[in-house]
Design a protein around this nucleic acid. Structure first.
Length: 311
DNA sequence: AAGCGTCTCAACCGCCCTCTG
DNA sequence: TCAGAGGGCGGTTGAGACGCT
């Protein structure tokens, strides 16, 4: 359909975020909640595209994020979920509170893949690698891979089969999964596959509704009672977040007053300093949460978390 | 100590889906 | 019904860190 880019790239900053930018973004979201990401950079006074802001927030700045390497248990869970879901990182991440899809994806590519290969397991299919006599191409090369399981089909057809139980009443994105066929049989039951070779978890150990993080349950309930389309609850972390940062329903006039129709003009034409004149916005500039420019992102995250507890 | 290769992961890119008017 | 906008998602990239020779 010839979709336009999410934002005009002219004049927008790219690359690593500075502590100052982090401050602005977190301050804005803590003060105003999450609305349309496209408006966030403008209102927060950032020279970033909305998508970049969303990514930065969800992958790095959210107060409920865990930091550091995945634990053994988390790693196990990722492996088993990957066997069932394939590269649906957001779905996998939804089973690991405080972890992001990006984080899991990176961990998979850098750590778990290697581990599985060392164990003689194809990380793509979760089946034993072909005997070395058949490995003319490198085992790591795509050519060497056995045919992908059903769940590895092209993205075009990746309608997800998320169990409705975990996302009942959740966002519209979950409806993507409505048409998906049931997940493939567990690999532990796949012919030619020995569960002894992989630290595979039984599904009962994974789908643990009773042990699900309380926030997930709370989110499901919240989503059921207060449906919203502004923010997808596709991941439990998002659910946590939604519970912590209720999506703000801004009045329609707010968007009008923000001049969202003039995105391109504002960003491409105006100098950075003029991109977010607060007096043109319905929302007043958030009062800064802190002023120390040397504040690290982590410190700020802690600060933000403390502030959240006041809600 | 310097040079080089490898690894890690934050960030970007582009496609796809859903919603809305 | 359709086009456009917004947002989500998975794949990929590249800069810095790290390790080896």
């Amino acid at each position: 359909m010839g979709r336009q880019p999410c934002c005009d790239k002219v004049g927008l900053k790219k690359g690593p975020w500075t502590a100052e930018e982090d401050q602005k973004l977190v301050s804005f979201i803590l003060s105003n909640g999450q609305c349309c990401w496209r408006a966030v950079p403008k209102l927060a006074g950032l020279l970033r595209c909305g998508k970049s802001c969303r990514l930065r927030w969800t992958n790095y700045l959210r107060p409920d994020l865990k930091r550091g390497l995945l634990s053994d248990a988390e790693e196990k869970l990722v492996i088993d979920l990957h066997a069932q879901l394939g590269n649906r990182w957001s779905k996998i991440a939804s089973q690991l509170p405080g972890r992001t899809d990006n984080e899991i994806k990176n961990h998979w590519n850098t750590h778990i893949k290697k581990k599985l290969k060392k164990m003689g397991i194809d990380p793509l299919t979760h089946k034993p690698l072909q005997p070395t006599t058949h490995q003319h191409p490198s085992p790591t090369s795509p050519e060497a891979r056995p045919p992908a399981p059903e769940h590895q089909r092209p993205k075009l057809n990746t309608v997800k089969a998320e169990a409705t139980s975990t996302n009942t009443g959740a966002s519209a994105t979950s409806s993507r999964n409505d048409q998906e066929p049931p997940p493939p049989p567990l690999l532990s039951k796949a012919p030619g596959f020995c569960t002894d070779e992989v630290p595979m978890m039984h599904p009962d150990e994974i789908m643990v509704p009773a042990a699900a993080p309380p926030s997930t349950t709370a989110c499901a309930a919240a989503a059921a009672s207060t449906p919203t389309t502004s923010y997808s609850a596709s991941a439990s972390s998002s659910c946590d977040e939604e519970a912590l940062f209720p999506v703000m329903e801004w009045p329609d006039t707010a968007c009008l007053m923000m001049g969202l129709d003039d995105d391109v003009d504002m960003i491409a034409g105006a100098p950075p300093a003029a991109t977010a004149p607060w007096d043109e916005c319905l929302v007043q500039p958030p009062s800064p949460v802190y002023v120390d420019p040397c504040f690290s992102a982590f410190q700020f995250q802690q600060e933000a978390w403390n502030k959240l507890e006041l809600f």
